[in-house]
Design a protein around this nucleic acid. Structure first.
Length: 156
DNA sequence: GCCAACGTTGGC
DNA sequence: GCCAACGTTGGC
């Protein structure tokens, strides 16, 4: 079992959208390192934290589970799509997607500002300045710690 | 293959 | 809206 953090801009796709759709194609990955995570490292059944970036409230908002193997990103072939890539050929697609399924939405967002206060999380990749990967691996310890923070919020 | 210019990400 | 950090592009 592995843990991952998936970033999304809620104005584009939020935890609410995922909750409504239940399962979605996680498309639009246009970074080779992240593409390789999707292809090689990520497995069906891995647990995902959903993170809202570039938003009024930045932080972790819920959990999901990886629900498919990697397959060609459907947007890369759609002319006019923001994610259209004319260099990508159907017989050798550049970009991959996986499906993820909604698991839970936290009662309250766990804010980035609060994550930064936690010693346990100080090595978490998302907190590293300049980190721009939209998917990052999480240690089990980090994942569980964030769940604990989410539970604490509920108690307040 | 180097590297400057440019574009994008993402927190503030 | 600003800007630092970083990836990508393209001329040489």
């Amino acid at each position: 079992m592995q843990y991952w953090l998936f970033k999304t801009e809620p104005s584009t796709y939020s935890i609410d959208d995922l909750k409504r759709e239940k399962t979605t194609e996680w498309y639009g990955i246009r970074n080779y390192q992240v593409r390789n995570f999707l292809r090689d490292a990520i497995k069906i059944g891995d647990i995902v934290l959903i993170y809202h970036s570039n938003a009024e409230e930045i932080g972790v908002v819920g959990t999901a589970v990886v629900a498919s193997d990697a397959y060609p990103d459907t947007e890369q072939f759609k002319e006019g799509s923001k994610y259209y890539d004319p260099k990508s050929k159907k017989e050798n697609p550049s970009w991959l997607s996986r499906d993820i399924s909604f698991v839970s939405q936290f009662p309250e967002i766990v804010l980035l500002a609060d994550l930064k206060k936690e010693k346990t999380l100080k090595n978490m990749l998302i907190l590293r300045p300049g980190n721009r990967l939209s998917i990052t691996p999480l240690k089990e310890k980090e994942f569980k710690h964030i769940l604990t923070l989410a539970q604490k919020n509920k108690a307040c």
